[in-house]
Design a protein around this nucleic acid. Structure first.
Lengths: 148, 148
DNA sequence: TTGTACATGCATATTATTTTCAAATAAAAT
DNA sequence: ATTTTATTTGAAAATAATATGCATGTACAA
């Protein structure tokens, strides 16, 4: 019994969202969305988005990137995560559900999914009378290359 | 094949540690350790330890509690955790291994353990060539009382 | 006792996040 | 095209949590 997969959020969805809700399409939002939704990877810090954005428009500010990322989170277009200390990471909402393997040396992040674990987690929550909304599972260690 | 359980850390162990390493036994450390190791629950914020400590000695500073908690973490007597945002929580090291169920409404924390999940996590890490050092698993939702 | 290295308290520095506000600008109304 | 308006932006400052520098205080060994 598979759930219907949530549609992956794209830049096009975001553009539509802006128009439909009466928000404005700005140069800054366009650049930030392009990087976030179509960029080379899946886990962006605000600082990193800012760096990339400034190559396209040197005047973009941290505050604007910050507010845009928060907007993504609020409207359900992004998930905000905290791995250990340091800054939040943002990833596009609606991709396959997954958890994370994190190398504490080189900070590399590998995504994985394990349906058996998911089921067991649901069981645990149920057994304690919890109505589970979400979970967090992160495995930390050293990756193959960092073990050498 | 059960692993040998790590000895639970106590205030007495801490006292011994201080002496053996040439650190000083101070009134402040004694108060803080008493609260942390023998207090009423298992998940302390620095602020909370400070409040309790000040009932016993009004002059104790945040910095001292902070540094003492950091010492507990460094010497392996405490684990530092971040549930969502907000301040870190500290818990005594060496109790049974466990993960957490967290009520997002009332912030209640329930500890649980599930050996099957643990094994599956180890498998996942191994499959990706990781040498796993630790993991984090938190299930968020609403507890029985908050569902009413 | 007294000396000394470690510990403490206060103040301040850092780091990450969040907000304020005047000026800029997108989009609607003329 | 120009004006109007409400939203958005950038710069700076506020907040929150964590971390540190330093003068003073204190545990403990000599």
């Amino acid at each position: 019994m598979k759930l219907i997969p949530t549609q992956i959020k794209t830049k096009k969805h975001f553009d539509t969202f802006l128009v439909s809700k009466g928000f404005k399409k700005t140069r800054q939002r366009d650049i930030i969305a392009e990087i976030f939704f179509n960029g080379p990877h899946h886990h962006y810090r605000i600082e990193e988005i800012l760096e990339h954005a400034r190559k396209l428009d040197a005047s973009i500010s941290y505050a604007t990137v910050y507010r845009t990322m928060m907007m993504f989170v609020e409207i359900g277009f992004a998930q905000q995560r905290q791995f250990g200390k340091g800054q939040s990471l943002f990833e596009v909402q609606g991709r396959h559900h997954h958890d994370h393997l994190i190398c504490t040396q080189c900070k590399k992040i590998i995504e994985f999914e394990n349906e058996t674990i998911e089921k067991l987690q649901a069981q645990v929550a149920k057994r304690h009378g919890f109505k589970m909304t979400h979970h967090k599972m992160e495995l930390y260690g050293t990756c193959v290359s960092c073990q050498k």
